[in-house]
């Protein structure tokens, strides 16, 4: 039985797409057949982060409307052949995604893949609602910053009430906290909420902490999910996150500031 995992946050710009791309790539790299779906209709970005923007012919909405088959619309990753990407449509029609259409496509994906990763748009409107509605598990991406944490708490409320599992009484959507853009040096100086602060407020299990990293930008520039960057802390942190998701015990490696890193980053 395939698992549907939504990557969500409420707030925009916190690293949902970066996380969805790296998470899906990591699952595939570990041998799991994975599809990653962009739910941000009108503002698609996952294709760029995955480096497949020039290979998009058909998209999610085309499949929902029966203008293309799922097979035609899925883009196979060049690095991992068990990884496929379904791009969002650039239509401006807000109602392009229908609950029945999304359900049909997800069912079809679930028949073929082990994991279906849904990259949610920001906000709590239709696209975000449908991205989380059919989920079994949720990665709640949060920055250590007040507005992001409050929005994540709002999204947790929705996961507990506005999902198929909640409505059917099928048990909770399993929630995982992913704290991104973490800066241990600023936490040490008392300038940034710590991972313990955020855990205490949101009260969900921590899956991973992704340190603030220049590699995230350079990887997105190149269209390579940052998890493939083995020389960057952020890439290694995503690898740990995927391992933990799959049940491995891994210590959190990037919560404290490494000696020398500070001077490497800021010392010119």
């Amino acid at each position: 039985m395939a698992k549907i995992v939504v990557v969500t946050s409420g707030k925009g710009g916190v690293g949902k797409t970066t996380t969805a791309a790296s998470f899906a790539t990591g699952l595939a790299a570990r041998g799991h057949k994975t599809a990653v779906v962009d739910f941000d209709v009108g503002l698609r970005n996952l294709d760029l982060i995955m480096g497949v923007e020039r290979r998009v012919v058909f998209d999610f909405v085309n499949v929902i409307h029966g203008e293309a088959t799922l097979k035609q619309a899925l883009i196979k990753d060049k690095q991992f052949e068990n990884l496929s990407i379904l791009a969002a449509s650039q239509t401006r029609d807000k109602d392009a995604l229908t609950a029945a259409g999304v359900e049909r496509v997800l069912d079809e994906l679930a028949a073929e893949f082990e994991y279906v990763v849904c990259d949610s748009p920001a906000g709590i409107e239709r696209g975000a609602h449908l991205a989380m509605y059919f989920a079994d598990e949720a990665l709640v991406v949060t920055n250590p910053e007040v507005s992001s944490v409050r929005d994540s708490d709002r999204v947790l409320g929705l996961l507990a009430s506005k999902t198929r599992r909640a409505e059917r009484g099928d048990g909770k959507v399993r929630e995982h906290l992913v704290l991104t853009r973490y800066n241990p040096a600023r936490v040490a100086k008392g300038e940034m909420l710590s991972v313990d602060d955020v855990k205490e407020i949101l009260a969900i299990p921590l899956l991973g902490v992704i340190p603030e990293s220049q590699a995230v930008l350079t990887c997105s520039n190149a269209g390579v999910p940052v998890i493939r960057e083995e020389n960057a802390d952020a890439g290694l942190a995503y690898q740990d996150l995927v391992a933990r998701f799959l049940g491995e015990e891994r210590p959190h490696r990037f919560l404290d500031q490494k000696k020398g890193l500070f001077s490497k980053l800021f010392g010119g």
């Binding site: 007040v146 944490v149 409050r150 409320g157 936490v187 008392g190 940034m192």
Partner: peptide, 26 residues
Amino acid sequence: RTSAQLAKDRLMVAVAIQRAELAGKS
């Protein structure tokens, strides 16, 4: 009191209010 503590204190209140409001509605 650090900037991070200030953030945490404000968040605790904001989140508590948000949860109470939503619980009332649903």
